[in-house]
Design a protein around this nucleic acid. Sequence first.
RNA 1: GGAGCCGUGGUGUAGUUGGUUAACAUAUCGGACUGUCACUCCGAAGAUCGCGGGUUCAAGUCCCGUCGGCUCCGCCA
Length: 599
Amino acid sequence: MNSSATPQLLHRTARCGELTPADAEARREVILTGWVHHRRDLGQLIFVEIRDFSGTVQAVFDPSHALEAHALAETLRSEFVVGLKGRVVQRESVNPKHPTGSIEIRVDLLEILNPAGQLPFLIDEDVESNEELRLRYRYLDLRRPRLQQVLRTRHRLSAATRKAMDDLGFNEIETPILTKSTPEGARDYLVPSRIQEGGFYALPQSPQLFKQLLMVAGFEKYYQFARCFRDEDLRADRQPEFTQIDVEMSFATPEDVYEVVESIVAGMFREIGVTIELPLPRMAYAESMDRFGVDRPDTRFGLELKDLGAAAEGTGFRVFDGALEKDDGTVRGIAVPGAGDASRKVLDRWTDWAKSAGAGGLVWIKIADDGKISSPALKVLGEDGCRAAAAAAGAGNGDAALVVADSRSVCNRVLGVLRLKVAEERELIPEGKWNLLWIEKFPLFEWDEKDQRWYSMHHPFTAPRGEDLPKLADSPGEVLSDAYDIVLNGTEIGGGSIRIHNQEIQSQVFDALSISKEEADSKFGFLLRALASGAPPHGGIALGFDRICAMLTGSESIRDVIAFPKTTRAACLMTGSPSKVDSAQLRELHIDLAPGTKE
RNA sequence: GGAGCCGUGGUGUAGUUGGUUAACAUAUCGGACUGUCACUCCGAAGAUCGCGGGUUCAAGUCCCGUCGGCUCCGCCA
């Protein structure tokens, strides 16, 4: 075990997973390097599966063939790093479960390049250790074939995208990571300046302003795999730092952006062997809210939201009448096919879901296969009334209708949530479908009750649609924008807009957002000056690359498609960041910790 | 900020109404084995049950607090 000496068997001549029966036919002599995956010691014969990035292959040590190599093989343990030399031969007993199961390496020479101690968990597909441990020893977790496969796919998706963008004439241009804090949006990660006392950089939430300035500069077609940072609480699909495919084009309409994005996305799907039909369907925001209750509809299945309309009017049912009397009040519902025999327990659970989504309650109407109706509203509505209401929701014999009476926005929100959860629970979402579509014609602003002001739905640089410009001052709530989202199976995978290229309109939008001239000037003065210096009409999009990778690799969480992810408390368990720094470092940055800060 | 689930030898789990030696598998160490493939067989070692406090004659188990991981709500233009 002379692992300190200069290794002899370092330069392999083949890769484990790529050896074939033809190599055995030729009795090819190879040098392999890799890790000990499994070891099966039969006393005389020793079988060792060697693993490298390409896969595994079995090596056999036979004392009658190579005594020294066999003796050394007795000392091998899991995850030792070895080099070996031998001939590829046919196996005496074939293992059909294994890609290289018909061949093996008859080893002449073995060299231990580096031994390994006992590892915190097994590098085996089916043994799941807990996530905390896997994150602490991420480099071991990443040895697993599954994660290697995922990151390899991620690489192929980015390589395909870079190739496509180059072919389309886009330039990849990097933008600063140390930049300026901007109001609105997410919390910024801040970086203190040593040189400028009391000054802070912010890490970019996105390269939004820089890419617009590149358009002003005349680059016309820009893209970038941009790292973005947002200091908000984490989720399975949210990390504090993540990657966007950031795109911006001059002299562009939404159509131009759609065309580019569709070719990128179709190219990524091609990498996983899926053909996407182009052009993608489009849907107005208003229609999506009306039919699905959300702005990112999952169109793989039905259960669409319906107005109960006449069936709910004048029934004397207090729940319905109460809602209909209100401004904007309505009665809406969904039909759950095959739920006509749902148990009380199930209906109670659905009611709880509706309540936690903001509904006062949930009216359910079950119709058994034989047409028998049960519902809490049966007494008031009668058989015919219930049947009419259920029919309006789209439910017939054997189905259930779930009905919510409230303001239109509450109905949509509640039913939108219910539709997804019920469909998931009842397994009504078909596997293997990839439903992509564009959502467009978003409102420019949304009203915030708490702050009593308008906020940008997308961001403050989104262009209002031309025909809505006159409404900007007086009825901002009615202004639609040239913003668009691309949605895959109910997940938003990207969003963008045509930008404001005119300083006057940009100022009007800041007015509507109650951003004062002074604030606009101090935060975005450079942008306003740029817009007044010959800015071309322009627009673009940002695609959530991590989410796309997660969906295309069937990963539950984007942690799986990020090599070194952070926990839900935004920590890296492997390096132990964030961590304390010594007081000299803080002094240099002109920072005092607040009294009471935990040491 | 809030809610839920989880934390037991290196690892994955079991552990009843609180009851005396904390069980099983795997990995580790030693032994046997020439066609295994999650090799098999025999033996050994390995745990103050995340941490702190409390109730009790007695706590892995009950209570309170705390730390960590995950999921969700708020939040994420």
